Simulated scan of single mutants.
Amino acid sequence: MWDYRNNVLEFIQRGIVVFGISPDSQASHKSFTERNQLPFTLLSETEKKVAKA
């Protein structure tokens, strides 16, 4: 994750959209994003369907 955070501008310049995903709640993502200064969206996937796929 830190590599994505630290290099997100390179992704953006290449037209790549970066998302994070985890089974944690939206509320926990908000505080995590703020605390770690993440410049991309974290998606909440509590049913873990994506992780299982």
Rank of each mutant, 00 (worst) to 15 (best):
D3L: 12
E10R: 13
S25L: 08
I21S: 05
K48I: 03
L42P: 00
N7C: 05
I16Y: 02
S28C: 04
V50P: 05
G15H: 12
G20L: 12
S31Q: 12
N6W: 00
P39W: 12
V8Q: 12
S25K: 05
A53L: 15
W2M: 03
S31Y: 09
N6C: 01
S22I: 08
V17L: 09
V17Y: 09
L38C: 04
D24F: 10
F40G: 14
Q26P: 10
E45G: 03
L38N: 04
S25Q: 02
R35N: 10
E34T: 05
R35P: 00
F19C: 03
N7A: 07
T41L: 14
F19R: 08
L9H: 11
A27C: 02
I16M: 03
V17H: 08
Q37C: 06
K30R: 15
E47Y: 02
A51P: 00
V8P: 04
Q26A: 10
S28W: 10
Q37D: 06
Q37V: 05
E47C: 01
V50L: 15
Q37H: 12
R14Y: 08
P39Y: 09
H29I: 09
R5M: 08
I16E: 01
I16P: 01
S22D: 11
A53M: 12
Y4P: 00
S44L: 02
T33S: 06
N7I: 05
R35T: 14
E45L: 04
Q13R: 15
P23F: 12
A51K: 14
G20K: 14
P23H: 05
P39I: 10
Q13T: 08
T33E: 03
F11P: 00
T41M: 10
Q37K: 14
L38P: 02
N7S: 13
D24P: 02
D3Y: 15
F40D: 07
G20M: 11
S22V: 07
D3G: 12
I12C: 05
G20Q: 07
P23C: 08
I12W: 10
V17N: 05
T41W: 06
L9S: 14
L42T: 01
A53D: 08
H29W: 11
T41E: 09
V50T: 14
